[in-house]
Design a protein around this nucleic acid. Structure first.
Lengths: 233, 233
DNA sequence: CCGGGATCGTTCACGTGTTCACAAAGTCGC
DNA sequence: GCGACTTTGTGAACACGTGAACGATCCCGG
């Protein structure tokens, strides 16, 4: 493996690393010392060759004939994913979704403490949700200044998302996770990921609809209602 | 375009159709009659050629020199996505996330009525959340029988997700949207998509971490902190 | 010290998705 | 009607991700 490859991990691999990490953490908790690519692939729901190729991007941490050392792999992977220290998170929008995210254990527990929520609704500002203070959107610059490099989670209505994102970014935010059902335009230096519930449901709806069509029209012909799609790379 | 192509829409295209549809619906609401692929691409945040190729999978609904008829495209796309009728949804898990999803307007409003939530916590069973009745998991078979083909949304703890999924599937469910932070194994005839908050944050963390590394080590060299990644295909 | 068995790391071929580029096909002004 | 202009639809080149295959490497028992 060339020295350069270690610094250019394919996007598809990056998206799978957290899954591997979670699986490996479970294994470590159950006192499993080593694991083969085949078993890890099974647990992570992917192909064994893919596991080996993915892990090879991190370096040669496996031992032929034995497998991978779970503890060491967890350590290296955590380091690579930047999980050795906390990343503060600010949630924009204290509505249903925002509150649920603030309460979500998986957030704060594992390295992503929610340091504040911001909203424009003055009746919410000043309260606390799961211990997280709700502050006014206008205080955003202060919050970023307090915590430095921060991750923005957008849980606002669609109409407000772009405006809030713009303010986040001009305040210095470079990582945005968008839950609002809207397409966001961000500058090149900002990393954006999006989670869209409606889109996911509609994708499911498409395949179901097509399956219904296929079985309806092809009652006697060779109906090929190909199923089994895994989602959200 | 061969007759066959209309029935084999690439997965990547399917994932973008809902975005186009939402954009087009907004345009229709603002009395825009026709739109070019270039403008639609701009609004949807993608490449113009990609828009044309994606839309060509639905058929030749554009007019050269003019663009696409917005209304007609909305109609065809809704039909293709199976949005001409409702798809009932059952949410498993009445915790923070499940409740937020039940309250989420984008769900029930646009063709995905939440007909029930299921949980094993007897203190929750019998109550209503945003008008949605919370029933016991054991009633799952009844619920599926009542509403026929149903979409399952899993908002349970990770440990319970596989069990609940198994029960859903044996009750007849063929579409599953998984919010639980766990890898699910489902039979081939079931469509599965997943949304994982922790994974998304960790992906953001990776790119931020790498960026920090790059700028730290390459203060004087040609620091190439390549940003701008769009998420969740 | 050596052979057998297991498993990694990598190469290669293939399929899928993206982007460019351009002919085909339409509109509009005159 | 006709030419200029606009925009679609698609062919082709390219980039990327996947999965199978296999040599390389390591442990273990004797």
């Amino acid at each position: 493996m060339a020295e350069d490859d270690r610094r250019t991990i394919p996007e598809a691999t990056v998206a799978r690393l957290p899954i591997y990490l979670r699986t490996l953490a479970d294994l470590a908790a159950s006192d499993t010392a080593t694991i083969s690519s085949e078993r890890l692939a099974e647990l992570a729901g992917v192909n064994a060759a893919k596991v080996r190729k993915d892990l090879s991007h991190l370096g040669s941490y496996g031992t032929r004939g034995v497998g991978y050392d779970v503890e060491y792999l967890v350590y290296q992977m955590s380091r690579e994913l930047g999980l050795t220290h906390d990343w503060p998170v600010v949630i924009a929008g204290a509505g249903n979704l925002g509150q649920a995210l603030a309460n979500y254990a998986g957030f704060g527990n594992r390295g992503f403490p929610v340091v504040a929520m911001v909203d424009t609704d003055r009746s919410k500002v000043g309260s606390r949700i799961n211990g997280v203070p709700v502050r006014h959107l206008d205080e955003l610059e202060d919050i970023v200044a307090e915590h430095g490099d921060i991750i923005a989670v957008l849980a606002t209505p669609a109409g407000a998302a772009q405006d809030v994102a713009d303010r986040m970014i001009s305040a210095g935010v470079t990582s945005v996770l968008n839950f609002a059902p809207a397409v966001l335009n961000v500058p090149d230096h900002v990393w954006l990921r999006k989670v869209d519930l409606a889109v996911e449901l509609q994708i499911l709806s498409f395949y179901r609809q097509r399956h219904a069509d296929a079985t309806a029209t092809a009652t006697a012909s060779a109906g090929n209602g190909e199923p089994a799609a895994t989602g959200t790379g």
